[in-house]
Design a protein around this nucleic acid. Structure first.
Lengths: 213, 213
DNA sequence: TTTTTAAAAATGAATGTTCATTCATTTTTA
DNA sequence: TAAAAATGAATGAACATTCATTTTTAAAAA
């Protein structure tokens, strides 16, 4: 590849990046503004005008991207949910032993929530509140399938308790949301050590306990 | 006790009940209306006029009982929180063995949430949302002290893991909130059997695992 | 017991503000 | 230079809160 064609392809790539960005930059700014304001004020207490200001665009522009306020929040929810599930399954392959797989996914969840605190709070907010349409909410749950499959595999192997996915999720994953919330609101600190401890507790709760013979 | 004095005391009691009720009936109607509407619409999407209508009083009357909308929600939150903690510790005495004590309290929590579904959803809503003032929120946490003390006792006895109260709470109590939410929203059913299973998972997560010798 | 009366409680229409959404105009793009 | 994108002031609806008026209460007087 000579210099000329390299520069040509580079300029094309940059142009293409910019072209992609055009509206995507705005869309991202909008999403982040929504998340930020919703977690600190609540959805209905956050005016569109403030979201617009935070995203450095005009209120009218929001309506070029989303039909209305409800459509905005549904889409932001789905976007975050997708990013979340994308992040947590990235290192997972389904031929790894169950406990190790679970550990990998669990740590991905913990690390995602610790890194993307705002998004984590936003998800908690949406999941405990009637602001999201039922349809979008159902859509958001689907993405967890690989984890449910993993649990089923564990159950077949006699490693994981025969509880339904809701119960397993409640003990193995949901507590993390509480810890992140506490970390934000109170003075609780989630160190590497307590993360390890929290994982052990998650695993202890869903694994089948071996009895002393 | 003769008939006369019986009737006298009865009329006194009724009068006293009615006397107590006067504003208490309204206050209760107001609280229940708020809970009902907040869990189905969210706080900021619930107008005072609707709360008033649901409680069968006039919008203006609310302001005789509460300073403003924020004051109303703070008070409802504290009221429910108090009722909750009152309910869950009612059979607890601190000279019962740790595991049994925990089981008693845990089942009280589960049963309260199953019976008072609206209140349970309301608490989830408030605890994951910025609608409650920090001050009221802090006030609401205090009431859990007996449970924290129990855990400390368990830690001293070497029965319960040496995790901080936040972590213990996240695994031993918080998952119940998820299960109740799921029960409401989805088709998940919480039977006596799965309740037992959930308790076992809660206990398995916080107890110290004995190693095979 | 019935009537009177002043205080307390409750009412709901009116007020002023906030906000979602629109659209005529301006700016940017290619 | 025409089409596309963005703007932000204007509109109308919704809502929290107020307060002049009405209703209820219960104690005092008849």
């Amino acid at each position: 590849m000579n210099v000329h064609s390299f520069l040509l392809s580079l300029s094309y790539q940059i142009k293409h990046m910019v072209a992609l960005s055009k509206s995507d930059i705005k869309r991202n700014a909008l999403i982040n503004a929504t998340i930020k304001l919703v977690i600190s004020n609540g959805f209905h207490a956050t005016p569109m005008s403030k979201i617009a200001k935070e995203a450095c665009i005009s209120p009218g522009t929001i309506y070029l991207y989303y039909k209305n306020k409800q459509d905005l929040i549904n889409n932001v929810y789905l976007h975050v949910k997708q990013k979340f599930t994308q992040a947590i399954f990235q290192n997972y392959t389904n031929n790894t032993p169950v406990e190790e797989s679970f550990k990998i996914i669990w740590y991905q969840i913990a690390d995602y929530r610790l890194k993307e605190v705002a998004e984590a709070l936003f998800l908690s907010h949406c999941d405990n509140t009637p602001i999201i349409d039922d349809e979008s909410r159902k859509e958001g749950i689907k993405h967890l399938q690989p984890l449910l499959d993993l649990w089923e595999r564990g159950q077949i192997d006699g490693i994981i308790k025969k509880a339904c996915p809701y119960v397993l999720y409640a003990y193995a994953v949901y507590p993390l949301a509480f810890l992140i919330n506490a970390k934000q609101r109170d003075d609780y600190e989630l160190t590497d050590e307590s993360k390890e401890q929290a994982f052990k507790m998650a695993w202890d709760s869903i694994k089948i306990t071996e009895h002393k013979s």
